[in-house]
């Protein structure tokens, strides 16, 4: 899952070898696609969904994504965030975490973030959220080995834990 145009389909194509359309405009993907990827020695289903800005869908394409999340209660969610726009990506990620899904976060477009001079402290982000956070560049396949190898560490966390750890880390900071 992820917001519009963050590279979900590029991710999906990389991980499954599919040929879903990738384009630089929001709303490229309007329906879901299922594929298979190798994870811990066996093939598992991976689903590409349309982008959605939040879990309150504002059109029919976003509805597809939100509905899919609701139906796949056992799913592990790869939450893709545009590393140059982390704030709003985190907003959606928190919504998904609140629903109790095990999440792994990919900070995609790491190259773009670098070029506009946005730095993200992935270790600290990981500490605060309590879920794996991996920088990636989907178009070049960077970070994918790490992503796949750490998918197993994705586990549900509660919002209280996150709130507590932000408090802690800001206290040690100042």
């Amino acid at each position: 899952m992820g917001q519009a145009n963050v590279g979900k389909s590029a991710f999906f194509n990389r991980l499954t070898g599919a040929k879903v359309a990738e384009s630089n405009y929001p709303g490229t993907t309007v329906d879901f696609t299922k594929g298979h990827m190798l994870f811990q020695g066996e093939y598992v289903d991976l689903i590409d969904v349309p982008g959605t800005f939040s879990l309150q869908p504002k059109d029919k394409a976003e509805e597809v994504a939100v509905k899919m999340l609701g139906e796949e209660k056992e799913a592990l969610v790869i939450c893709i965030i545009d590393a140059s726009k982390v704030e709003r990506g985190l907003y959606l990620a928190l919504e998904i975490i609140e629903k109790g899904y095990p999440v792994i976060i990919a900070l995609n477009m790491w190259d773009m973030a670098k070029s506009v001079n946005v730095k993200v402290d992935t270790e600290k982000l990981e500490q605060i959220l309590g879920v794996p956070v991996v920088p990636t560049v989907a178009t070049r396949g960077e970070g994918f080995k790490e992503l796949v190898s750490r998918m197993g560490q994705a586990a549900p966390v509660t919002i209280e834990e996150i709130i507590r750890s932000v408090g802690n880390s800001s206290r040690t900071h100042h």
């Binding site: 959605t52 800005f53 939040s54 309150q56 504002k58 726009k85 709003r88 907003y91 959606l92």
Partner: peptide, 8 residues
């Protein structure tokens, strides 16, 4: 405000 919350 619900619609654009996710857009930041």
């Amino acid at each position: 405000r619900y619609k654009i919350a996710g857009m930041g």
